[in-house]
């Protein structure tokens, strides 16, 4: 009888949660830059692109760092995927809301 080895879901869950964290970091940074002149000017990494360069570069670094840490912790494990995916989707939904200018103006 042959047994099929099934990959644990930890690696996939890590990638999914990291994507949620990265998207949310981008939205929070964009929001902070919109609300604070000091934050906005500190996010100018490349002058021709302005604060968008800092918002996106920082968010990508946060995303990749979170992904690396989560992969290291969960990569070979089976985790409660439903809960992790719910958190990731909530973060993604909040990110969409936080980047929508009329909502940013309300907050």
């Amino acid at each position: 009888m042959t047994r099929t080895y099934i990959l644990p879901n930890g690696s996939g869950a890590a990638a999914i949660l990291a994507a949620g964290i990265g998207s949310f970091a981008l939205a929070v940074l964009a929001f902070a830059g919109d609300k604070s002149v000091a934050v906005k000017s500190s996010l100018v990494f490349y002058k021709p692109t302005g604060p968008l360069s800092g918002v996106t570069t920082t968010a990508i670094l946060i995303w990749l760092f979170a992904w690396g840490v989560l992969e290291w912790r969960w990569g070979k494990k089976t985790v409660a995927a439903a809960r992790v995916i719910t958190v990731a989707l909530v973060l993604l939904g909040l990110s969409l809301l936080l980047t929508f200018p009329p909502i940013v103006d309300l907050l």
Binding site: L26, T99, F100
Partner: peptide, 14 residues
């Protein structure tokens, strides 16, 4: 557009 567009590569990379 300048912010929401970045969700595309992050999501599709995952």
């Amino acid at each position: 557009k300048e912010h929401v567009a970045w969700f595309a590569p992050i999501s599709i990379t995952m």
